[in-house]
Design a protein around this nucleic acid. Structure first.
Length: 143
DNA sequence: GCCAACGTTGGC
DNA sequence: GCCAACGTTGGC
């Protein structure tokens, strides 16, 4: 079991859209990068992840959980790309911006900071707790 | 809007 | 298999 961070552009897939899908969740489509795909392949049902918005807000706004493990991406015709299904679990009471994350020495090794372009990233347990705390969740969900 | 960083492509 | 050229992403 593990923690992750999933990136989205608000125009492509917003947190509101994600929440509307409810507990059944929705396919996390559109990933066309091998490293990101491999990370999705490693996901287990019940894993938790941050929902991060790149572009305008650049912040972690919510928590999702994996409800279906990797399977072919229905938006891909080549059969080469896969996706998982994720469902919204909770809002962060206070979104955590990239700028804030960068001010914390213990978060300087987050993939988000080190390799901002990777759209599906692993998150360590320590990072998970720290960002949850910054977001106003005192008792973070755990895997 | 710019540009650095990164991944992919394709010629050799 | 190397590497230059190119396209894309995403922070600023």
């Amino acid at each position: 079991m593990a923690y992750w961070l999933l990136k989205s552009e608000v125009d492509a897939w917003s947190w509101d859209q994600q929440k509307k899908e409810g507990r059944k969740g929705a396919e996390w489509t559109g990933v066309r990068n091998y490293q990101a795909r491999n990370n999705m392949r490693a996901m287990k049902e019940g894993d938790l992840g941050f929902f991060y918005l790149s572009g305008g807000d650049k912040s972690v706004v919510g928590i999702v959980t994996v409800v279906k493990e990797a399977h072919p991406d229905s938006t891909d015709g080549s059969g080469q790309w896969e996706c998982v299904d994720v469902a919204a679990v909770a809002d962060l009471p206070q979104p955590v911006t990239l700028a804030e994350i960068k001010t914390k020495p213990k978060l300087e090794d987050m993939v988000l900071v080190r390799n901002s372009r990777l759209s599906v990233q692993p998150v360590t347990e320590a990072e998970w707790r720290a960002v949850c705390a910054m977001g106003g969740i005192s008792d973070p969900p755990s895997v």
